[in-house]
Design a protein around this nucleic acid. Structure first.
Lengths: 157, 157
DNA sequence: TATTGTTATACTCTATAACTATA
DNA sequence: TATAGTTATAGAGTATAACAATA
């Protein structure tokens, strides 16, 4: 059971202290996600990458010839939503849509040389941005965080 | 499942036990947040509460006579974005805007009796939804998660 | 019939800028 | 001048539904 201690009473009303809201994991998760999201944009915005472009390119680099449907599945979004992301990556010359022999419905995705180079650079920027944001965490806390986030995701039906 | 294709056209970019993407805390945070967000809606949608309405009402109940500017600050959103949220809560009879003697620019917010009742009920639904989502976590993991999320939020400038 | 990629559309959440009425 | 609340607007991000081409 969550703790709604009586200590709240003695706290000032004008300063941010414990509140019901702060006790909810979902709310804290959202706020932490927004911190990461905003900092990601600050760090990678000038490189022309939003979070979605980066995520998609990462998987395309790592899974050459992945189809759009499969990529959407891995990203947890709808196929329709992926079109604009791939359009943009293709427009920047980072990704190419390629026909697949044997099934003409499918478009396989492949990163170009430019795409791979841009990804490797962006990846280092992301690592640096995460390192800064997580610098207050102990290695144990970091391990637990990653494990817990994974557990939560895997609980998804 | 990591796809351990030993023979790839280009050299592997990673330790290839898992994808680059899964190694980024920001990405895992986002996916976990989306799991919570979707389940929140499933659990509270029929009660007429979205996450924002719930968060705002929670703080209004807990900080009676809070102003809109102060509430927006606590929620980490802009004043302008709060207007629609308060409009909706007011339209449902959960919240009242009240004039403040001495400064006619300010609207203080107060939960009605209905609002407090609705909040207390919704709070239990949220607790139940979180308990289910977090049932695979040990108490230690849960404590660490909460502490870490707080640390991340507090690192925000 | 089912699936892939696509378009059209709408909804949520949020931010920016400008307005009004106060201070 | 500055602040509180508000309006208008725009931009991500996502979902649903439908369509054409292909299986």
């Amino acid at each position: 059971m969550p703790r709604a201690t009586a200590a709240t009473q003695s706290r000032s009303l004008t300063e941010d202290r414990e509140s019901d809201l702060e006790g909810f994991v979902g709310y804290n998760l959202k706020r932490a996600y927004l911190v990461f999201s905003a900092d990601f944009r600050r760090a990678l915005g000038r490189h022309g990458f939003g979070p979605r472009q980066f995520s998609a390119l990462s998987l395309i680099v790592q899974f050459p010839q992945i189809t759009q449907s499969e990529l959407a599945r891995k990203l947890g979004i709808e196929r329709s939503g992926l079109v604009a992301i791939v359009d943009e990556l293709e427009g920047r010359g980072f990704v190419a849509r390629m026909p697949v022999p044997g099934d003409r419905r499918v478009q396989a995705l492949a990163a170009t040389k430019d795409g791979r180079t841009a990804y490797l650079h962006a990846r280092e920027v992301v690592r640096s941005h995460e390192e800064t944001l997580l610098s207050d965490l102990t290695p144990d806390e970091l391990d637990t965080l990653n494990g817990v986030l994974r557990k939560i995701r895997e609980s998804e039906a």
